[in-house]
Amino acid sequence: MAAEKNFENKVKKFLKDKGAWVLKYWGGAAYTKSGIPDLLVCFNGWFLGIELKAPKGRPSDLQLYNLRQIEKAGGIGILLYPKDYEQFKGFIEHLELGELPVNLYGVYPFLTEWNHIKNN
């Protein structure tokens, strides 16, 4: 769990330094909803739901479902592992410049790792 928390802090700092609005969501408590992404982010007009995982972490079906719902609503659902952090930073820099690749899901692996659920 410490690895995921350290990764979370690194991602939050990067996003805040870029000027993003970032909300850390704690799910599963008495009055909160389970399965909501760890970070809810608004950056340069885009809504991002970011589920963070440690290197060997696995998302739940509910977490994947919510990422898909974010995409259906026009946002970007991201399942982010530490191995993809550098590419994630590049993705955010593209959003910052207003340059979104035409084939978004073919460029960034953290947007496709959970692709198997998109058509369910």
Rank of each mutant, 00 (worst) to 15 (best):
L97Y: 07
N119C: 08
Y31H: 15
Q87D: 11
I117V: 15
P59R: 01
Y81V: 15
K56F: 07
G27I: 00
E113W: 14
L52W: 10
L39V: 11
N103Y: 06
A73K: 14
L15E: 00
L67H: 08
W46H: 12
P101N: 09
A29M: 11
Y85D: 02
I76H: 04
G90M: 09
D61T: 10
L23N: 08
L100W: 03
N44C: 14
F47D: 04
Y105C: 00
T112A: 13
S60M: 04
K56H: 07
L15Y: 01
L39C: 05
M1V: 13
K16I: 14
P59A: 10
N44H: 06
E51F: 02
G77W: 04
L97T: 08
I36Y: 00
N6H: 10
K24Q: 01
L100E: 12
P55D: 04
P82Y: 02
Q63M: 01
A73Y: 01
K24W: 01
P101R: 14
R58V: 04
D84A: 11
N120I: 15
P59H: 07
A73G: 13
L64Y: 00
C42K: 09
G19H: 15
K72G: 03
F7S: 07
G19Q: 11
A54M: 02
L23R: 06
F88V: 09
G77R: 06
F88M: 12
Y25N: 01
K18T: 14
F88A: 08
K118E: 10
L79E: 02
G106S: 14
F47H: 00
Q63S: 06
G74F: 09
E8M: 00
A2D: 15
K118M: 13
Y25C: 02
G75R: 06
K118H: 05
L62T: 14
